[in-house]
């Protein structure tokens, strides 16, 4: 029991993102309101971004900006520097997520103009008519 508990605590960042992801996923699948679905999607994406970011962080790690002189003289101790690649990747992922959100918001505006509501069941009702 203790072993499991310490395992959970040791990797608390992963558990946070898992919980966040589940919240987002639930909202996407379970919610009736389109805005809430979209928010769920954003939470979901944010959770993944968090996971990536936290994977690059090291205990006591420094920012990955190097002094050229120092690096040439003493070399680089990569154990002391946070891994920048996940951050860079997530920059792209954020851009993607923002664009998707933008498109989704635009779509939602058009849905609202057409059906006068953003509740999924009401839209379906109006569609059938």
């Amino acid at each position: 029991m203790d072993a499991i508990l310490s395992e959970i605590i040791a990797k608390y960042n992963y558990w946070i993102y898992v919980v966040l992801m589940m919240i987002g996923f639930y909202a996407m699948i379970g919610k009736n309101n389109l805005v809430k679905k979209l928010l769920g999607m954003n939470i979901f994406q944010t959770a993944i971004i968090l996971m990536f970011i936290s994977s690059g962080v090291k205990k006591g790690g420094l920012i990955p900006v190097l002094d050229k002189q120092a690096a040439l003289e003493h070399g680089v101790n990569s154990a002391l520097i946070n891994n920048p690649v996940p951050h860079v990747l997530m920059l792209t992922a954020i851009v993607v997520s923002v664009s998707v959100t933008g498109v989704a918001l635009a779509l939602m505006q058009r849905i609202y103009r057409r059906y006068g509501t953003l509740e999924e069941n009401e839209i379906l009702e109006k569609m059938d008519r």
Binding site: L38, M41, F44, Q45, V100, V103, L107, R110, I111, Y115
Partner: peptide
């Protein structure tokens, strides 16, 4: 539009 929105959710 609605189909597209559903696709957005699923696709994402």
């Amino acid at each position: 539009v609605v189909s597209s929105f559903n696709y957005v959710i699923m696709g994402s």
